[in-house]
Design a protein around this nucleic acid. Structure first.
Lengths: 244, 244
DNA sequence: TGCGCAATCATTGTATACAATTTATCTGAA
DNA sequence: TTCAGATAAATTGTATACAATGATTGCGCA
């Protein structure tokens, strides 16, 4: 179709060389929910799959861990990150702090070329949805936010938003309630409309509401399934079976 | 004196093991301006100094590069990062977006223990200033902001602020104008006062102004010293000596 | 004398070998 | 049968050896 179809992932090239390719493949797989949170990422296995040495695999895993996509446990290995409910809330609080203002800045700097690019992006999202390619649709949906942050032309903040969007993908994988990603499409259309009208106030407000909507579709109620408290739940606090 | 005197650096343990120690030593040295921006960080040299293999040095350098303290140039080596004026502006725009609201949140969660801790911190800053230990004073000054972000109890945002403070240290090393860090002390005192009064509005406003003050003490005017334009400056635009 | 080129040197990037730790399996006794 | 302990296998952490790239120096030529 267009350049968005197989576009490389969004993590900017903090690292280069072969490990960058491994980072790209892994992060794309995580963003498309082909790798579920908690999945073990064995070094030998990855070096075998990608036909590179463990050295570059380890470098890639370290990079991914810095971006919050992978969790490294010493002497235990690498796992696809599994954000807790608390972390999920924090991520969207941070996004609420950064993205509305960024949408405003983007509006002020928006050019015709930018608008065309965003329009093509939404088309690609729509396409993926229509073909029921949910993973790809989700990845593109996140990338839309990143495109906006880049238009705002604040590399530092854009970097933060990239990290937050990446973690949001994991959060959605874990805590998504409904199957309807329809609202996404509508919200993105509305944003594009505000951009094309040059209405910065509206863009800021729409982004703010959009983020609230996303959180609303998540189930972030405090769950019981914490292994530590299991004994307490069954036996009451300070049971003799649990030591200090 | 107290635990703040030789406290470990603030980068939270994303990595563990020997490389964490290398990261700690290097980042502290950078924060205290003992390592100037642009300094080459040779792998062999570092592995010799810290008595570890190049493997762990490389891991440490990669971690530092992700935190923005070190710049990795492929096949060229690692250098202490040298933020441009543009990046400097971006960093403080990001801080302006995050820190005032964080100061508000911190106020709302502030306990007596937190207040005592911040008070001790300011004392340590004052001490370092009095002894003319400028590097240490600067590091503690940045750490004050990080302490506040931790009190706000938003790990994700706190992580961003840590990165921004780290880069701010480099920015100050490059673009500081006056020698007077006095304003810092006063501003921190005023913030502590707002915290102890539980005045969230005031804390937010003070933090906002404090950040503006810091930027004011920097010289972020567009400079000529770009090597590319040197020829143009001396010979006029599109001189035959420079090729496209 | 000044410039361009080439060979040498130094440094970084990658792969592999070894050490340390964790996990799984097996044996044996209660 | 079940649990504990010990041994074996698998995996990760670290060090070192080799390859590739970039910087430097010296030579030759104009």
């Amino acid at each position: 179709m267009n350049h968005l179809s197989e576009s490389p992932p969004f993590i900017q090239p903090t690292i280069t060389g072969p490990s960058a390719a491994v980072v790209a493949r892994l992060s794309q797989a995580i963003h498309e929910h082909r790798l579920a949170p908690g999945t073990k990422l064995g070094e030998d296995e990855l070096s075998d799959v990608f036909d590179v040495s463990r050295t570059v695999v380890r470098s890639a895993l370290q990079a991914l861990s810095h971006d919050g996509l992978v969790e490294l446990k010493r002497n235990r290995g690498a796992f696809v990150a599994k954000p807790t409910i608390r972390e999920a809330r924090e991520v969207f609080e941070a996004r609420a702090l950064l993205e509305p203002r960024t949408a405003r800045s983007a509006t002020e700097r928006m050019t015709r070329a930018h608008l065309d690019r965003l329009h093509a992006h939404i088309e690609a999202e729509h396409d993926a949805m229509a073909r029921a390619e949910h993973g790809k649709a989700l990845r593109l949906s996140g990338q839309f936010h990143i495109e906006i942050s880049h238009i705002a032309d604040q590399a530092t903040i854009a970097g933060f938003i990239e990290r937050l969007v990446a973690r949001s993908s994991l959060i959605i994988a874990l805590y998504w309630q409904r199957q309807s990603a329809m609202c996404e499409k509508h919200a993105h259309h509305a944003l594009l409309d505000a951009f094309s009208r040059g209405d910065a106030d509206d863009a800021e407000e729409l982004m703010k509401n959009h983020l609230v909507d996303i959180v609303t579709t998540l189930d972030l109620r405090d769950p019981a399934p914490r292994e530590i408290s299991l004994g307490e739940i069954l036996l009451g606090p300070s049971s003799p079976g649990e030591k200090g």
